[in-house]
Design a binder for these strands. Structure first.
Lengths: 204, 204
DNA sequence: CTAAATAAGAAACTATTAGTATCTTAATTC
DNA sequence: GAATTAAGATACTAATAGTTTCTTATTTAG
């Protein structure tokens, strides 16, 4: 006998898949429960029972994808570079790859809604992401220190997060993220910053 | 005799003012023609005759404000610093001030809509802004060069725009833009980057 | 100064759609 | 096998975006 009705986790997965597909094709601003229900071959009421708004559904679907795919966590990257530069390239390359997945879901559109609602889930996702990125960068800097390559590893968190912020900004504003830009960032900004000897302010 | 009906530019200004006020208080996502009409003490149809969507109205209102107030253009700033560091502080401080005005209008919410529509007006606004910022930074670097302070003025545009991008990212993600962060950016990133002697890649 | 043209403003109307409620029945549990 | 739970279908309600029509104030032209 064939199943006529899905339920529970099974059904939920179908809804998440439909949600992500619509996010990709039409974007968050055109995401509504009726379309998701149609695509997932279920009913509007089923979705209303589970989520309050298309926003919370979208967040849930994305979180689910992150959870199941564990998408390119930068802190689980095994670094094989023989220099700070190589390690940084590896790290930020991985970061870009994992970000591309989000670009597909047009999360930039979600951001507006999130800031409006002072959404805590999004804030949490961001700060979790930041923690992972910080960790990864610290690892890179430690390796460089051991190699005897650099002077500074005590940079403030804001500055350590700068490369990730900058790349995310490019993503949000739909500016292409190329390998070349990555090299510019590393050679012209990050390496000088991490190598810089003193933090004396030449205020004259 | 008192005017009973405003028209033309007069009326348009009233609509712009109402639009900006609603952007401030409720944000773009809650901007609709009916509310604007009410607040501007005019009629919905008057607005529909002029603009297609709340989005285009919002853009028009913001553009109008930029035009009339010429809001803190960084390229018209007269620099008085006696060092690169001081000039950078002055420039980026001014930048932050002018950005705050936009923050009030919650343009982050607009961004989602803009990226969805591949909006050219926004793209144009951004690239105009970039040109102004580049210009201003070049001026700062030139002054430093004349003082004999720095080595590099031939950085690629992407890198010259980095401080502005970073600050904008903070704005969009509602992270506080403090004077302290500005100093970190300048001391730990920009000065090292602009001073860095060689661009040899230490790939071993 | 008057007639014609233009555009503001009011109001009613239509269509869409978000959200809710109700009911039937499949699937699960006890 | 009865009772419970939840899926899925359908219909309903309320809100509102957008349109249309009409009246009249204001401007322009003769």
């Amino acid at each position: 006998m064939v199943q006529k009705r899905r339920r529970g986790a099974d059904l939920e997965q179908a809804i998440y898949q439909a949600t992500l597909q619509i996010l990709k094709s039409k974007g968050f601003l055109n995401l509504n429960f009726a379309d998701v229900a149609d695509l997932a071959k279920t009913s509007k009421s089923v979705i209303y029972r589970r989520w309050q708004t298309p926003f919370s559904l979208a967040i849930a679907a994305i979180q689910d994808k992150i959870k199941t795919e564990n998408h390119g966590r930068t802190d689980e990257l095994t670094l094989t570079g023989h220099s700070l530069r190589e390690d940084l390239l590896q790290l930020l390359h991985r970061f870009i790859i994992s970000m591309q997945a989000f670009r597909d879901f047009r999360i930039a559109e979600l951001l507006g809604e999130a800031t409006q609602k002072q959404n805590t889930t999004i804030q949490q996702l961001i700060s979790e992401g930041n923690a992972i990125d910080l960790n990864a960068l610290d690892h890179v800097l430690e390796r460089a220190k051991k190699r005897g390559e650099i002077i500074k590893t005590d940079l403030p968190e804001e500055i350590k997060l700068l490369p990730f912020d900058w790349l995310r900004f490019h993503l949000f504003t739909n500016q292409p993220l190329t390998e070349h830009k990555l090299e510019l960032l590393i050679d012209d900004v990050l390496l000088p910053s991490y190598h810089y000897e003193s933090r004396i302010n030449p205020t004259q």
